[in-house]
Simulated assay, not measured.
Amino acid sequence: MTSFLPRIWPSFDGKPIPSRGTAEVFRIFARELAVGRRSWVGETSHFIADQFDQTAAEWDTTLATGRDEPVRDALERGGPFPDGVCLELGSGTGLFTELLRSEFPRVISVDLSEQMLRQAVGRSPTRVRADAAALPLTNAQVSAVAAIDMLLFPAEIVRVLAPDGVLLWINQLGEAGPLHLPATDVADALPGDWQAVEANAG
């Protein structure tokens, strides 16, 4: 079951929205991957890592959305959260790690791109280069998974989450974002029974 919260963070002009055609190609890929109609193979993983390695140095200044309203809103209204480790998937240059650390006692930042993680030095104390499809963690180890503009790997997220764990699924550009999945689709893709809370912010 999904509940919807009223918008409290206004929408702003000037969002760096990608071209409609490009975004739709990525959204189709993201949906098919989430529901198991598309496989995540080594070739795709290497391609994605290479793309982000190449853009890491200029990410913060030219490619990042600069928007943290969705993350702030999720942390303020998405709880209460269980106490424990938060796994930040697709952490990139660590732009949102500090916000997550304000809520969780420990944040482990995980990214496929080595160069993005190098840019996160000073922001993310604990950084791990890993593929979100095969996380180097034991079962039921984390209290929360934060996936900000990230592909959804349902089985792996459920595997590492504690029984009372929470998934923060955040699309900074909402429906215009290239990896957008609504909360209902995310909940349906995750193994087991899930309750979802959805909100728009910024």
Rank of each mutant, 00 (worst) to 15 (best):
A134P: 02
I148W: 04
G174N: 05
V166N: 02
A176I: 01
S113P: 01
D164C: 14
P178M: 06
T138N: 11
F153L: 13
R123T: 09
M150C: 12
A133W: 11
A132R: 12
P105K: 02
A162Y: 04
V145A: 09
L152P: 00
S102G: 12
V128P: 01
A130S: 14
S109L: 09
R127Q: 15
A176W: 03
L135P: 00
A130G: 08
L161S: 05
A133I: 11
D164R: 14
Q172E: 13
A130V: 07
V107E: 01
A140C: 13
G122P: 11
S143H: 06
Q141C: 15
L173D: 07
E156N: 05
L137N: 06
M150D: 03
A134S: 15
P154F: 05
P136S: 09
D164F: 13
D131H: 15
A144Y: 03
L168C: 04
L137Q: 09
L168H: 04
N171H: 09
Q119C: 12
N171D: 15
P154C: 10
P178S: 14
D111E: 12
A144L: 02
V160D: 00
S102F: 08
R129Q: 15
P163S: 03
I170T: 03
V142W: 05
A134I: 13
G165M: 05
T138Y: 11
A146Q: 07
E156I: 07
A144E: 00
A134C: 14
R106M: 10
D149Y: 08
P136R: 10
V121E: 15
V166Q: 06
N171M: 04
L151T: 02
S109A: 15
Q141K: 14
I157P: 00
P125F: 10
L135Q: 04
P154I: 07
A134M: 14
L151A: 08
L179P: 00
V110D: 00
A132F: 10
S102R: 12
L179R: 10
L161G: 04
I148S: 03
Q119V: 08
V128R: 08
I148K: 02
Q141V: 13
D111Y: 08
A147S: 11
A144R: 03
P125C: 09
A147D: 02
